[in-house]
Design a protein around this nucleic acid. Structure first.
Ligand SMILES: [Zn+2]
Length: 278
DNA sequence: ATGAGAACCTGTTCGC
DNA sequence: TGCGAACAGGTTCTCA
């Protein structure tokens, strides 16, 4: 399930493939995604040049002339770069929902569970993508300098939710269940702890832990749980380094105490009662 | 304003 | 061996 590190890896590897390329031959499936490009949008997009490729939150964003394509991977979204013609690829591969040509390559977006989506955004007047009234809650980038203990402390003073539920609300971009769990373990904070009960010292530890696990995950090629792979089809190695996520009925790698498993905000949570304090 | 819960989706795993 | 239930979770939506 792609979170920030996995989307970042895919984005970086797509830069040399897409930069300054003209897009043509848009194709979309008729299955419902969270969002899909309309025929009109495909028409508008045709023959536009890709000027910039970047990631914001969990979105891969292609910047074109006066417009953007945003791609969200949901849980099982995947991009394949291929020389195989569209008719052949689509006939031979399941769950293909969008494709286009970028000069010497074809791109294919596949998504088994269809939690992903494709969005087309046009520039309106002088507004850019990030100050307009778009239906995207991007949240603060956790690897930016603005994301620090003062910021997160200030905005969380009235939050009664468990800290893990709050981390996954999208206020902090790109954090999902895996990295919320891992960062809380590393920070020594119990995921059930009331958010506003955390003081500036512990918030500081949390901020550093979030930055650490995300950076490490990017360096390790991301986390492959079921089917994440980079655009070359290779699995990530970070799942081997998980301290708590997915380790049901296993023992804490630090203190050897049995890990706890519990649903918090509708999501499975793994943590060590001894190492992670309220 | 805050937060709790449902809904979307399908491949895999588990229990009987 | 087979069948159905449970499970996985990012995001948006509804409702208290
Ligand atoms: Zn422990």
């Amino acid at each position: 399930m792609p979170e920030l590190p996995e989307v970042e890896i895919v984005t970086r590897s797509l830069i040399p493939i897409l930069k300054n390329k003209i897009l043509t031959n848009f194709w979309t499936s008729d299955k419902n995604l969270r969002s899909q490009l309309s025929d009109y949008e495909c028409f508008i997009l045709t023959n536009k040049k890709v000027k910039r490729i970047f990631r914001q939150a969990k979105y891969l964003i292609l910047e074109l002339d006066n417009s953007w394509i945003l791609i969200h991977f949901g849980m099982t979204g995947k991009i394949t770069v291929s020389k195989v013609e569209q008719k052949v690829f689509i006939a031979n591969n399941k769950h293909v929902h969008c494709s286009f040509q970028a000069e010497d390559n074809f791109l294919y977006f596949q998504d088994i569970r269809r939690f992903g989506g494709l969005y087309f955004v046009e520039r309106s007047d002088e507004k850019n993508l990030f100050d307009s009234q778009l239906p995207f809650n991007f949240g603060i980038e956790p690897l930016s300098e603005k994301f620090n203990e003062n910021y997160i402390y200030l905005i969380s003073r009235k939050v009664n939710m468990p800290i893990k539920a709050w981390l996954m609300k999208g206020i902090i971009a790109g954090i999902g269940n895996i990295y919320a769990s891992e960062a809380l373990f590393r920070a020594g904070i119990n995921p059930n702890a009331k958010t506003k009960s955390l003081g500036i010292i512990r918030m500081s530890r949390l901020v550093n832990s979030i930055k650490f696990v995300l950076t490490e995950a990017i360096r390790s090629g991301g986390s492959t749980i079921n089917n994440y792979s980079n655009i070359d089809g290779e699995a990530g190695n970070y799942a081997k380094k998980h301290m708590v996520y997915g380790r049901k009925d296993k023992f804490c790698l630090i203190c050897n105490y049995m890990l706890d498993t519990k649903y918090i905000a509708q999501r499975s949570s793994f943590y060590c009662k001894k190492c992670q304090k309220f």
